[in-house]
Amino acid sequence: MLCYVVFNAVQVMVWWIFDSSNHFWPIWSIVAWGIGLMFHIWGVSRPARVG
């Protein structure tokens, strides 16, 4: 989770400092990685099936 936050914060800073366009391109990795992270957390935290 810390890697997700740090890496995406760095991407946003790079976009903010170096990109002159108004297209917020870091959104693609934030959303895609966030969906994967959400499914991982959901799979780890739900109770195990018995039977």
Rank of each mutant, 00 (worst) to 15 (best):
M1T: 06
M1Q: 01
L2A: 10
L2D: 01
C3L: 09
Y4S: 00
Y4C: 04
Y4V: 01
Y4H: 05
V5G: 01
V6W: 00
V6M: 05
F7W: 12
F7Y: 15
N8A: 04
N8W: 04
N8P: 01
N8F: 02
N8E: 03
A9Y: 07
V10P: 00
Q11C: 14
Q11I: 01
Q11R: 15
V12D: 02
V12I: 15
V14K: 09
W15Y: 14
W15D: 00
W16Q: 09
W16H: 12
I17F: 12
I17T: 13
F18T: 10
F18D: 12
F18P: 03
F18Q: 09
D19Y: 08
D19S: 10
S20D: 11
S20H: 06
S21Q: 06
S21G: 10
S21D: 09
S21V: 06
S21W: 07
N22F: 11
N22T: 12
N22V: 10
N22R: 14
H23I: 07
H23W: 06
F24C: 08
F24W: 14
W25G: 06
W25K: 04
W25Y: 15
W28D: 05
S29H: 03
S29I: 03
S29Q: 12
S29F: 08
S29E: 05
S29W: 02
I30L: 15
I30F: 13
V31R: 01
A32P: 02
A32L: 14
A32H: 02
W33Y: 15
W33P: 00
W33T: 09
G34A: 03
G36F: 14
G36D: 07
L37K: 01
M38R: 00
F39C: 08
F39K: 11
F39A: 12
H40T: 14
I41A: 09
I41N: 08
G43W: 06
V44Q: 09
V44K: 12
V44I: 14
V44L: 14
V44N: 06
S45A: 08
S45C: 06
S45T: 13
R46C: 08
R46E: 09
A48D: 11
A48I: 13
A48H: 13
A48F: 14
R49F: 11
R49M: 13
R49P: 10
V50G: 06
V50N: 11
V50W: 09
G51W: 15
G51R: 13
